[in-house]
Structure formats: C-alpha cells, structure tokens
Design a protein around this nucleic acid. Structure first.
Lengths: 144, 144
DNA sequence: GATATTATTGTTATTTATTCTCAATAAAAA
DNA sequence: TTTTTATTGAGAATAAATAACAATAATATC
C-alpha cells in the first residue's frame, strides 16, 4: 500500500500544486497522531517538535488532505472542527456523548451499496459519508 | 398527534423553565418554514413579520428545540449551522454536494435497530443520528 | 546551472458566528 | 399583591477561520 506521503505527492502533482516541506511536516504530524485531532492541537504538537509551521498553513493544508481522501472531518463541536485520518483505517462510525463529548467508534452497516445507489440515482460522484449516532453515556445520563 | 407547541410546552414544564411569547414565536416560525433554515434567515423572517425577538433569544431557543426532539442540526457549512424540523417528518438522510451545497433528501436504511444495538452495547441513551453522504453533483463534477 | 514565473508561506488584520454580561422585564410561585 | 428568579435585548467579548500582502522558494524554462 502506498504511504500517505506518496498519496499526497501524487495528488499534488496531479493538481499542479507544489511540494513543500511545510505540507509534508503537517501531514507527517497528522499521521503521527492516532485518534482525533483539531487545528490547535496539531499546531501545538508541531511547535513542540520544533517545526516552524503557521496555523494558516495548517488551515490551508487540511482541505487538501480531505480532498485526496487522507483525512475527514469528524464533527464540529466546541466551536471548531475535529478531524481524523482515514487512509489505511477500517471504515467505522461514531457514537458521541452529548454530555461529555466522549466518542466510541463502532463497526456498522457498510455503506458501499448505498453510495453506489445514490451515485446512479442522483448522478453524483460520491466522495464519502458520515454516520454519527449521539446520545448520553451512562455517566452523563445519571448526572442529569 | 400533539402539536409542536404542545410538545414544547410539556418540555418547558418538565424542565421547570418558563413559557414566553418569544420562544413561542420562534417555534412557530421554525415550523412555518419548510426545508432547512439557519439563525440569520430565521431572524430576518421573524423581523419581516414584525416579531420583536433578538438573535440572542434564537440562539438560546434552538438548543431547547433540539433537546426536546423538535428540530436537529443538519450540517455546519458556510461557517454556520443549518437546521431542520424533524417532528412530524419522515425519517430521511442527506446527500450533499461539496461544490454548490445542494442537498437531496433520500429515504435510506432504517436506523432503529442500530440505535437499539448501540444503546445496549455501550449503555447509551440514544437521542438521534445523522447520516450524510457527500460528493459532487452532475453540474459541479463537470465544472471541475 | 542560472533565471523567470508564480504558488506558497508567515504575519497581521479582518470577518463573522456564537457566547457572555448585565440591567430591565415579566412569568410563575407564594 | 408581592416576591422570586428565569428570560430578554443590547451590546461587548470571544474565537475560529479567512483574507491581504509582501517575502520566499518550488518548479519550469532557457
């Protein structure tokens, strides 16, 4: 399987964009994190490692990673976006607690069939999907 | 079937909150709109009808409507939330174009079974779910 | 390899959705 | 009728994300 970097470089070349060390550092850091991340955390971690990338560059890089299928948006909670990498990961969905924000990942219904149906029915080129179930975890339910 | 207003008043009483004309006006307007809406549009429509409610009150009311199951968040695009009312509407999902933002509603896999499985497996009290498939519509695909 | 072109970067300013503050008001309880 | 306190509106504050712009550096061209 091709590495994230390779996938990204291919995408860069295909789109006529430029290969820069900043983008590569950001991408490496994204894949060094396991689990969900947000712009601020990513920025702090890069800084902690001595990387000199600005937040602006992160904001500019993430849409590219999304567009080439390396990461996806998970949810918009706490007033900002959270992301996860999906390249090389098994498909899964999220169960989110509305109280404490805890997220459980679960395997669930496969969506390939649905995506194909929608593609033909509506003439769409499908890029992905998002299934989130939400409610209150045991603790938060009791706390209410 | 109980009206939206009744559902809301029950909720208000149960939670020990107060019944106010502002909340009622906002709720009426929400259900007068068919289709998706956002805070700004809702505010303008209320104003256009001479209602004197502030945006702050809308921001305060929507979470209550969500909590009692009358509306739900649809997506966070264009930098703000979009909502829809769900009380009295058939369950459905969304197919969203990443280019122009068009949204197609589609009937799809029922989620009750899944919700129950998750409730028992993780000890959650499930409040709802969200399935969105996204990609590019015919027009936007060609435009690229 | 040197030069020209232009995408990308970092800094800073800007935008804008949402939340917060607080005094005034009014709904419900006593 | 009086008291209590949740709610409101206005405006200030917050913060995520975007835009502007000059400086830099990646790629193409010679």
């Amino acid at each position: 399987m091709r590495s994230e970097i390779q996938v990204f470089q291919d995408y860069i070349r295909r789109r006529g964009l430029r290969r820069t060390p900043e983008r590569e550092q950001i991408l490496r850091e994204v894949f060094a994190i396991h689990g969900h991340f947000d712009v601020d955390g990513l920025y702090l971690q890069l800084r902690a490692k001595g990387a000199k990338v600005s937040k602006a560059s992160i904001y500019r890089a993430l849409p590219l990673f999304i567009d080439c299928g390396l990461i996806r948006e998970v949810d918009f909670t706490d007033g900002h976006w959270h992301y996860e990498h999906i390249y090389g990961h098994a498909q899964h969905h999220h169960l989110r607690c509305l109280g404490c924000g805890e997220i459980q990942e679960f395997q669930g219904p496969a969506m390939q069939g649905l995506e194909e149906q929608l593609a033909t029915a509506y003439g769409y080129q499908i890029k992905g999907h998002q299934l989130e179930v939400h409610g209150y975890c045991t603790n938060c339910r009791d706390a209410k």
